[in-house]
Every structure is written in C-alpha cells, then in structure tokens.
Amino acid sequence: MKIAQSIVLREASIGPYMLELTLADGTFIQIESRWSIHDSNHGAEKEWYADEGEEVLKYVRKLIGVQVLEIRIDERVGGMVIKFANGIDIRVPADVNFEAWNLHRKDGTMLVSLPGGEVSKWLPSA
C-alpha cells in the first residue's frame, strides 16, 4: 500500500521511546520500535531504537526539507518504508511485542502496525 508521495519532511522530534516525523501535508508518523536507515548512495545501513535520543534526532534532522517520494506499507508483515529523494530510506519492521509504528493523515486515516505485524486501518467516514 502506497500512502504518500512528493511531500517534504517538515519536522522530526524525539518523544519518550519514539521518533516522530511530520510531513508538510500534515501526515504524522510515530515510530516506537527498532528501525533502520538505509543509504542507497553508499550502501550503508544503521539500525536504531526509538529511545536512542539525541543521536537519532541529530541524524534524522538532516532529512528535514528533503522530499519524501513514498511511504510504503507492507500489510502482509506490518512493515513500513519511507523513501526520500536523496536516496535515504527509513525502514520500520513490525515488532512481535509492540506497536512498531502508526501513521495519521489530516483526512482522519490512521494506520497502526500491531504487535506481530497485523496492520489496522481507520478510514475517514464518508
């Protein structure tokens, strides 16, 4: 499932045990589990946990202002990939014990990766 495309990352912050991302269209993403950054330009990958604080934020803030090409949700396994125009991907796998991520859109759509990988959807009422 493809969620968004061609939207700039506007803000990144760290909360208690979570990374929060806000896109220019108001889409809000919380990452509450392990995740990784993959740099296709250098073949590098770094795994992070949401509670690693300022070190994480320092790296992610470099993505502010960069265009998000797409957000892809794999409903079969509960994973999410956020692809940026500069060749960076943020990859969030499902977590066996916790909600790994959730995504909220201004239209009321909400997606949540439940423990074990199921994705729950709440869609706006017509």
Rank of each mutant, 00 (worst) to 15 (best):
I29R: 06
H42T: 10
H38R: 14
R34P: 08
E55T: 15
A50L: 07
G43E: 01
F28G: 13
E55H: 12
E47L: 14
S40T: 10
Y49C: 07
A24I: 07
W48G: 07
G53T: 09
I31T: 01
N41T: 00
V56G: 15
D51M: 08
V56Y: 14
E47P: 14
G26E: 01
F28L: 14
D25E: 03
A44D: 01
W48D: 01
I29G: 07
H42M: 02
M18T: 09
E47G: 14
W48F: 12
G43V: 00
D25V: 00
N41P: 05
R34M: 15
E52A: 00
W48Y: 05
T22W: 04
D39Y: 07
D39C: 09
G43H: 09
D51G: 11
S33H: 06
L21Y: 06
A24S: 13
S40M: 07
Y49N: 08
D51E: 11
Q30R: 10
Y49H: 10
M18E: 03
A50C: 11
T27G: 09
E47T: 15
G26D: 02
K46A: 12
E55Y: 10
F28S: 13
S36Q: 04
V56W: 15
K46C: 05
E52Q: 09
D51S: 10
T27S: 08
E54D: 04
I37T: 10
D39A: 14
H38S: 10
E32W: 00
I29P: 05
A44V: 02
D39T: 03
